[in-house]
């Protein structure tokens, strides 16, 4: 079995987002970048499948050289080799086309990634890759088992789960609790340094969307405190003042 895991390199979930004064890009001062949390779930499940089936595991990232610590972490967790497409991942179609291009050369049985990146939250790349390759895609997948040539999955739907079966190859957008996050051990970290990392120029670069500017939500007004002993007054305020009841 051949598995490709696609990861994003994004600001940690605790980041207080701010932009440069002209609103043209993220102010990365003091920002800690990590593997996207959803991608981390996909990666963790891929490592488990590798252990179970002896699969080969390739990690792919579309990003500039700054993303290499995240790629090395994925290698330390158990990926065998890595591919970095050397470009800023600014448009979902562009990223999907890069992934599809690599897939066409390698015939992966499974292409796993997070349900969405936590920077742009588009949740588009897995579906576009599936369409470009002409194979099924599912998201958000919270359970994945492989039996022979069939993937047995659970997909989260509003208020519950949907259980699915489909033949490989597949593209999946993953989320918790598909696997427990893993922490690389010292042996993994040491071996990651010598694992192959190919850097490739983007193929057929074209963007369908372009973000022109960024902004923050307007600051929140002060919180109106209600004494606990008069808690019942909340309902009246929600009705007459906030007008939400």
């Amino acid at each position: 079995m051949k598995i490709l895991v696609c990861i994003t390199h994004v600001p940690d979930t605790t980041t207080k987002i701010k932009f440069t004064p002209d609103g043209s890009k993220l102010d990365t001062t003091g920002v800690q970048f990590v593997i996207g949390p959803y991608d981390d779930y996909a990666l963790s499940r891929a490592v488990e499948l590798k252990e179970q089936f002896g699969a080969t595991l390739t990690v792919l990232n579309v990003g500039t050289a700054e993303t290499e610590p995240s790629i090395r972490k994925a290698l330390a967790l158990g990926c065998d080799d890595a591919i970095r497409i050397d470009a800023e991942p600014t448009d979902a179609f562009f990223v999907a086309e890069q992934i599809a291009h690599i897939c066409k050369q390698n015939n992966y049985d499974l292409v796993l990634m997070g349900r969405e990146s936590i920077d742009f939250n588009g949740g588009q790349v897995h579906g576009i890759v599936g369409e470009l390759l002409g194979i099924p895609s599912f998201s958000p997948v919270m359970k994945l088992d492989i039996e022979g040539n069939i993937a047995k999955m659970a997909r989260e739907i509003e208020g519950g789960k949907e259980y699915l079966e489909a033949p490989l190859p597949l593209v999946l957008g993953c989320q918790e609790p598909i696997a427990e996050w893993k922490i690389p051990n010292m042996r993994g970290i040491m071996s990651a340094k010598s694992k192959p990392l190919q850097v490739i120029a983007p193929a057929n670069p074209q963007e369908l969307t372009k973000s022109l500017s960024f902004e923050l939500p307007p600051p929140k007004g002060a919180c109106k405190m209600i004494p606990a002993e008069e808690a019942e007054k909340l309902i009246e305020l929600l009705k007459t003042e906030a007008k939400v009841l």
């Binding site: 979902a92 179609f93 949740g123 599936g130 369409e131 470009l132 895609s137 998201s139 989260e156 969307t209």
Partner: peptide, 23 residues
């Protein structure tokens, strides 16, 4: 946006080569 709408929108975008903005 929904668990179905998101999954479907992405594939339609891929098929039609249409720019998709979510959220």
């Amino acid at each position: 946006k929904s668990s179905l709408g998101d999954a479907v929108a992405a594939r339609v975008a891929g098929r039609l080569k249409a720019g998709l903005a979510s959220n």
